[in-house]
C-alpha cells in the first residue's frame, strides 16, 4: 500500500468518525468567568487611566480682568443700607406676631355670645343687662369691619 493510499484511507476513516459536539461540563461558565475577569481588568485599568488623566490635566487658574474690583463693588453694595430691604425684612418679621394676634382675636370672638343669643336676651328684659353684651367685643367688631362698611358706602 502506497503512502498516498494510506493517507486516503485515513481521511475516509476520519470523515466516518462522528464529531463529538459535547462541551465539557461548565465550559460556558468557565469562559464567562474569563470574560468577566478580562472585562474587569479593562475597566479597572480604564478607571485608573481616567484618574491619572484627570490628575495630570493642568488646572485653569485664569482670573477674569478686574474680578476683585467686581467683588469689592458687590461687597460695598452689601454694606450700603437699603431702606426697602430693611422695610421688607421688618414686614416679614411681623408676619408671625400678626398671625398670632389674629388667632387670639378669633378665639376671643368665638367665646363671645352669639348674635342669636343677644337677640333672645333683648326680648327678655329680665336677662338684658349691660354685662351680657360685652361692649368690648362689639367695639372690636365695629373697628375690624369699619373698612368694609366704608366699602359698602362707596359702592
Amino acid at each position: 500500500m502506497t503512502a498516498n493510499e494510506i493517507e486516503k484511507k485515513l481521511l475516509k476513516l476520519a470523515k466516518a468518525v462522528q464529531n463529538d459536539n459535547r462541551a465539557p461540563v461548565n465550559f460556558s461558565a468557565q469562559v464567562m468567568t474569563r470574560v468577566r475577569e478580562q472585562h474587569a481588568l479593562e475597566t479597572s485599568s480604564a478607571d485608573e487611566r481616567f484618574l491619572k488623566f484627570a490628575r495630570n490635566l493642568s488646572g485653569n487658574e485664569h482670573v477674569p480682568y478686574a474680578f476683585e474690583k467686581r467683588i469689592m463693588a458687590r461687597i460695598r453694595e452689601l454694606l450700603t443700607p437699603d431702606p426697602l430691604a430693611f422695610w421688607s425684612r421688618m414686614l416679614w418679621r411681623a408676619v408671625a406676631p400678626c398671625f398670632g394676634v389674629m388667632i387670639l382675636a378669633a378665639l376671643f370672638s368665638a367665646k363671645e355670645p352669639t348674635a342669636a343669643f343677644i337677640d333672645q336676651a333683648a326680648f327678655d328684659p329680665a336677662e338684658t343687662t349691660i354685662e351680657t353684651v360685652d361692649p368690648e367685643s362689639t367695639d372690636f367688631e365695629t373697628v375690624m369691619l369699619a373698612s368694609f362698611d366704608d366699602l359698602e358706602y362707596t359702592w
Binding site: 488646572g59 485653569n60 487658574e61 485664569h62 482670573v63 474680578f67 476683585e68 469689592m72 454694606l79
Partner: peptide, 22 residues
C-alpha cells in the same frame, strides 16, 4: 478697613478659580 479685603481677594482668587473650574 474694608478696602484691605481686596488684597485677600487678589491673593486667593487664582486658587479659587482653579477649584471652581474643577
Amino acid at each position: 478697613d474694608v478696602d484691605c479685603f481686596e488684597e485677600l481677594i487678589t491673593r486667593y482668587q487664582p486658587r479659587v478659580f482653579g477649584m471652581a473650574r474643577k
